[in-house]
Amino acid sequence: PLAYQCHLARRGYGNFIDNVRIYVKGGTGGMGLPRFGGEGGKGGDVWLVAEEKMTLKRIKDKFPRKRFLAGTGANSCVHALKGAKGTDCRVPVPLGISVISSHGKQIGELNKPGDCLLIAHGGLGGCLDTNFLPSKGQIQIVHLDLKLIADVGLVGFPNAGKSSLLSKISHAKPQIADYAFTTVKPELGKIMYPDYKQVSVADLPGLIEGAHANKGMGHKFLKHVERTKQLLFVVDISGFQLSSKTPFRTAFETILLLTQELELYNKQLRTKPALLAINKMDLPNAQDSLNELMKQLQNPQGKLIYCVVTSYL
């Protein structure tokens, strides 16, 4: 399963894409007019603009070359000594985008509809200071890194029942089956209330031990936890075992491992509000296992448990 999961990581795990590299270039400035002291127009700028229904896949499909060029500034002329500015290029992007430079530095984020980020300046038009020669626009290769924004993020090991839960509480239709790594891409669902309030829920693909060190698809999955407002840990009351070659973990050990993976990936995740859902209570001896788990949660032997509410599915 781990090799299969790594294969999916290389392919972008299905049609869901959360990272795209694009080429952007600001427009060249316009020529100045030495005879009359005319100034060329500034080159256009390249902007990223956050739009609600946009996805990185749509960007990739609509702009397969992933090149975005702003317009050239107008030359100065006798009839227009001040050349017009070149046309700006506005690139629509999804909400939740982090913009990373080719050197790995974060340039900015776009989290709300209408958020704009200037990522390539247009060149200056020719003027007296430049001997009336224009300058070229800024060129950058940037990564658009998507982190899902949701009210609640479902976190758990494979086959814990996260997809089943999402399918029951929302209109989402995730793939469900009784084997590890059923979910290979994040699924988003919305819970609709009679008063028209909505709660967005993200089913984040199952983690494995060592995900914080990027085992399996660790960082691809864990980064989506960062922007969810609240976490819901989904734990199988009967415990968890990834394969015959890995140790069996009780429900209590599963909770400890999940919290550990999140903390090792990003310590700030410890401060995020979290709930605990104990699943598969219809299994034999589930009530006895639950009673034992409650005792362990009340006395975790010095180990921090920050899941504060328990519910049964």
Rank of each mutant, 00 (worst) to 15 (best):
Y4I: 06
G123L: 02
S76T: 02
Q296C: 07
D129N: 05
L275W: 05
N19A: 13
L275A: 12
P174F: 08
N159P: 01
Y306F: 15
I237V: 13
L165A: 05
I149P: 02
G83I: 08
I169G: 03
D151T: 07
L95F: 00
S98C: 11
K267Q: 13
K272A: 06
V155L: 15
N19H: 09
C307M: 12
A177C: 10
Q298G: 13
A3N: 05
Y193W: 08
V152G: 05
L276E: 00
Q106I: 09
D288A: 13
L264E: 11
I17W: 01
E109P: 01
N15C: 05
K190M: 06
R21S: 13
P194T: 09
N266S: 15
A70E: 00
W47H: 12
G239V: 06
E109C: 14
V49Q: 13
V309D: 11
S101F: 04
Q268V: 10
T28V: 14
A160S: 15
A274T: 07
P205V: 07
T271M: 10
A213I: 04
W47G: 11
L222G: 03
L297T: 04
A202S: 10
A172V: 04
D236Y: 06
G44R: 01
N266G: 09
T130M: 04
C127N: 13
N15V: 05
T182Q: 07
G73W: 00
Q5Y: 07
L118H: 06
N131R: 13
E292M: 06
F63D: 12
P94I: 08
F240G: 03
F36C: 13
I119H: 00
G96Q: 03
G43A: 07
V234H: 00
L128K: 14
G41C: 11
K168D: 03
K136N: 10
A172F: 04
L81N: 07
L242V: 06
A172C: 03
D88K: 10
